[in-house]
């Protein structure tokens, strides 16, 4: 089971749209004052013989106009 979690006050996560989680993940900055938002990638229940893991990344805001969602924040796409 893989998970993508974020500080809900700063980032809004989209759904990858597939049962396997392999697809396009989207997330947007919903707090207009947030400039770095932590995003946690974790695998809590890996297959047998593998270790669970969790890594935290600080995501910077990007407003380059190519992936905009609304006037409050910016949207970025991540494809698998």
């Amino acid at each position: 089971m893989s998970l993508l979690t974020a500080n809900a006050a700063d980032l809004e996560l989209g759904n990858p749209g597939t049962a396997t989680g392999v697809g396009k993940w989207t997330f947007s900055f919903k707090n207009p004052d947030a400039y770095l938002a932590p995003l946690t990638i974790s695998i809590a229940q890996p297959p047998a013989g593998y270790d669970p893991y969790s890594l935290i990344f600080d995501i910077p805001t990007i407003g380059d106009g190519t992936h905009r969602e609304n006037s409050r924040g910016t949207r970025r796409r991540c494809s698998g």
């Binding site: 396009k24 270790d51 990344f57 796409r77 991540c78 494809s79 698998g80």
Partner: peptide, 16 residues
Amino acid sequence: MGTGHIAKTLAALAGD
């Protein structure tokens, strides 16, 4: 993450 690959990253496991 920069240009993506989150789904692939999620699948990156260490099984040694």
